[in-house]
């Protein structure tokens, strides 16, 4: 089987999974209690005639099966519908815009930092197993791992944005000003990015660290590690060439699965720091029962998870010659 076929097959599996996800989230959101027109009309004071008109407008008075058929039909035509709440705005515009970029930047940077630190410190802790370094790293990582993201974010906000006042309190950019050039803009953006990035990075760090440390310890028991030591290689080479490369294989698979956790972490962080991303869109849409947007985000997320897993498999195949050969 060629590599292309392999990817093709994985993609097919992915599509089936996405189909399932789409169906489930259609059904679940409608079975759950909550009436979007409450949120749409904004205030319970809006009169009954208005509410009835809106219910009819969104087709919510039709049988569920009819709504579903319509939804699938529209989806196949590439239409994800119009937001109930931000009336008139196509869901696709809301999702695939600035919000997505903000989230990708936040998630990407914090994940990169967490991954980098998690791997490096994981390797170091495993190498110095049982020493003070190891134990203090474990304590720190367990603390960050079990710390609620929301709480930690609030603490950062209080300390760095309120008392010390070095980070802005909210948003992705200073509101209401026009930046002189892209450099200024980027500086402003980065300044806003720091606090949420640290929050999310710290909250991810613990998990990656512990996983890496465990995997490396496993790898240490392998015969080839004994060979590497017998060869009198430097510690750096033993750790980062021989141990880490093998330990990265399960790590990559973990990353594929981890995407969902990233999103939930992002939801919390984006809410605390008013970071205008998909996470906060989820939060707002859930609160307002904005089904079309939620369906859109979940579709997006399903695609993201599936793609992440396919990517993880491909990267694994690249890293691990055994899989690569099996694939080819």
């Amino acid at each position: 089987m060629g590599f292309k076929e392999y990817v093709g097959k994985r993609t097919l599996h992915g599509i089936v999974t996405i189909m399932l996800a789409v169906t489930l989230n259609f059904i679940l959101f409608r079975i759950m209690p909550g009436d979007p027109t409450r949120a749409v009309s904004g205030d319970p004071r809006v009169d009954t005639a208005t509410r009835l008109a809106l219910i009819a407008k969104f087709g919510l008075d039709r049988p569920l099966i009819e709504q579903f058929v319509l939804y699938v039909y529209n989806l196949l035509r590439g239409e994800m519908g119009i937001s109930f709440v931000q009336i008139g705005r196509p869901v696709i515009d809301i999702i695939l815009g600035r919000k997505m970029i903000n989230t990708i930047i936040l998630m990407g940077s914090s994940m990169f930092i967490a991954l980098f630190l998690g791997i490096v410190f994981g390797v170091i802790a495993a190498w110095r197993r049982g020493t003070k370094t190891d134990i203090s790293l474990i304590v720190v990582s367990l603390a960050t791992y079990s710390m609620p993201v929301f709480w930690f974010g609030m603490m950062l906000l209080l300390v760095f944005s309120y008392y010390i006042n070095i980070f802005p309190i909210a948003g992705t950019i200073t509101p209401g000003i026009v930046h002189a050039n892209f450099f200024e803009y980027a500086k402003d953006y980065l300044n806003h990015l720091m606090a949420p990035m640290i929050t999310l990075g710290v909250s991810f760090f613990g998990g990656y660290f512990l996983f890496m440390r465990d995997t490396i310890l496993d790898v240490f028991t392998e015969d080839y590690m004994l060979t590497a030591r017998a060869k009198g290689l430097s510690n750096r080479k033993i750790l980062f060439k021989h141990a880490m490369r093998n330990a990265l294989l399960p790590m990559v698979s973990l990353m594929g699965v981890h995407v969902t956790f990233l999103i939930s972490g992002a939801t919390m962080t984006e809410t605390v720091f008013s970071w205008d991303g998909l996470g906060r869109l989820i939060y707002d849409s859930v609160r307002n029962n904005d089904y079309p947007v939620l369906q859109g985000i979940f579709l997006f997320m399903a695609v993201l998870v599936v793609v992440a897993n396919i990517l993880a498999d491909i990267v694994n195949a690249y890293l691990d010659p055994r899989i690569k050969e099996a694939v080819e």
Partner: peptide, 13 residues
């Protein structure tokens, strides 16, 4: 080592 099966690093040529 005994059993070169595992004594060689599987991800390096």
């Amino acid at each position: 080592f005994q059993g070169a099966m595992n004594a060689l690093n599987p991800v390096l040529n």
